[in-house]
Amino acid sequence: MAKKQRHAYTEEFCREAVRRPDQPGNTAASVAKELGLHPGQIYNWRRQFSRLSEKQFNSLSGVDYSQQESEEERRLKRELHAARKENEFLKKAAAYFAKLQE
């Protein structure tokens, strides 16, 4: 069985493919057929563009910036979680030592 070849479409191509079904007389299926795509691909791109910001969808020299940003976001969330736990502990310790001094 032959493997399907993956295509790397430009952002401009994707945006045009998403924009064209919104024009009168066009459907996602007709545009997909015309462009040689599966109709689901147009819906996927539409969802990506609506969910992600301009910068997140861009890739430059094969580097996906959305992945880099999400890694940074996960790191910051871990740091925030650790800081909150430490803060909770310090509040309890302060309350404990305050009781001892009374």
Rank of each mutant, 00 (worst) to 15 (best):
L60F: 03
E34G: 13
H38L: 11
R84Q: 03
G36H: 07
S66K: 09
P24K: 12
Q48R: 11
A95V: 02
S30Y: 14
L100I: 15
S50W: 06
A93G: 05
T27K: 08
P21Q: 00
S70N: 10
I42S: 02
F57K: 02
L100K: 09
D64G: 10
Q56L: 14
E73D: 08
F49A: 14
Y43W: 10
A83P: 00
E12C: 12
R74F: 08
E72A: 13
S70L: 08
R19F: 05
L60S: 05
V63C: 01
G36C: 07
F89E: 04
Q41L: 04
I42F: 01
V18I: 05
R19A: 06
R74W: 11
V63N: 00
K85M: 04
L35S: 08
Q56N: 14
L52E: 13
R46K: 12
E72N: 14
Q67L: 12
L100Y: 10
R47E: 15
S50L: 13
E12L: 11
A17H: 06
R75T: 09
R75D: 11
A17M: 04
N58M: 14
R46C: 10
E34W: 13
A28L: 15
A82Y: 02
N58E: 13
Q48I: 11
E16I: 10
A29P: 09
V18P: 03
N87L: 05
Y96D: 06
T27I: 11
E86S: 02
R19Y: 05
S61L: 09
V63T: 01
F57W: 04
F57D: 05
A94K: 06
H38M: 14
R15G: 03
H38A: 13
A17W: 06
G25W: 04
F97V: 02
Q67P: 15
F49M: 11
D64A: 15
D64M: 12
Y65I: 10
E88N: 00
G36D: 09
L76Q: 09
L37I: 09
E71C: 04
P21W: 00
E11Y: 04
R47C: 13
F89M: 06
E71Y: 08
L90Q: 02
K85R: 09
R15S: 03
R74V: 10
A82G: 02
Q68A: 08
L52Q: 11
A82E: 05
R51K: 03
A83K: 00
K77G: 08
A93H: 07
E69D: 12
A29Y: 04
K55D: 13
C14P: 02
P39Y: 03
K33E: 14
A32Y: 07
E11K: 05
S50Q: 13
